[in-house]
Nucleic acid binder design. Sequence first.
DNA 1: GGTGACCCTATAGTGACTTCAGGCTTATAT
DNA 2: ATATAAGCCTGAAGTCACTATAGGGTCACC
Lengths: 140, 140
Amino acid sequence: MMLFGSLSIGKLAAATGTKVETIRYYESAGLLSAPERTKNNYRAYSSQHLARLSFIRRARALGFSLDQVQALLGLSDQKDISCSAVDLIAREHLAEIDRKLKDLTTLRSELSSLIVQCGHGKISECRIIETLAPEAERQK
Amino acid sequence: MMLFGSLSIGKLAAATGTKVETIRYYESAGLLSAPERTKNNYRAYSSQHLARLSFIRRARALGFSLDQVQALLGLSDQKDISCSAVDLIAREHLAEIDRKLKDLTTLRSELSSLIVQCGHGKISECRIIETLAPEAERQK
DNA sequence: GGTGACCCTATAGTGACTTCAGGCTTATAT
DNA sequence: ATATAAGCCTGAAGTCACTATAGGGTCACC
């Protein structure tokens, strides 16, 4: 009972690998425009909606925040302005990723050396607990 | 007007690099026990609190969730049980970090190749927008 | 005609805080 | 002595990006 050429929310969800609830959430958040409704009040999505949601999901998968996606979407709607605004958002995001990678790498090495130190004895000699304890405690 | 040898919430915050609000949050979340109060109802923290909060902050900085910190804290209180429970939590966490590192690395290379493609022209020729668009759109 | 899959709305919950409103107390500057 | 800024208090709401729940209507199939 769907309109010709339109998708139910479930089909759209399946087509984009999104949960139904998430699609409704994007609508309420203003990222995806409210689609037409069938006579039964079911959402009926067009191929424009499919394209837009695919864009959102790809950008999200690349780690852009919803605000950044919103900005990207706004820019992509104005086909005659400069690409450099898009480039800027992407570059800022890349810098953010590099910061996270750096932090995670440091963290990984700290944690893994902690694990190596663990002699599988009692808590009282556990290096993990000890290393996490503050300076004062460690000197006991 | 603080009790002898005790710290105000502000001092504790400064000593551990934590925000005052976050300390109150940890108390409400049950991670940090409620300290004594001065006659003016100000929180007065002991060195035990300082040690505990330092532990929490270090574990958080290593990316343990509050639940994991809670578990670690519970274990460290029982000094005679095996260290292997601690080791297990740490190893699980390490695996989690490795997953995140892998994802971020993939993401980084995707995003940076996107940026290289951007010719700084108009949006209509922008490779970033284009690459994020779905298959159907890209073939236009 | 029954039953299970799908759709709807509205509301609350998640994690780990942060912010805000509104009101005391203490320390410093004049 | 007083003004004011800084620090403390509580309780509630806001953040992000969803996810889950309650309570209902509709549809496809046997």
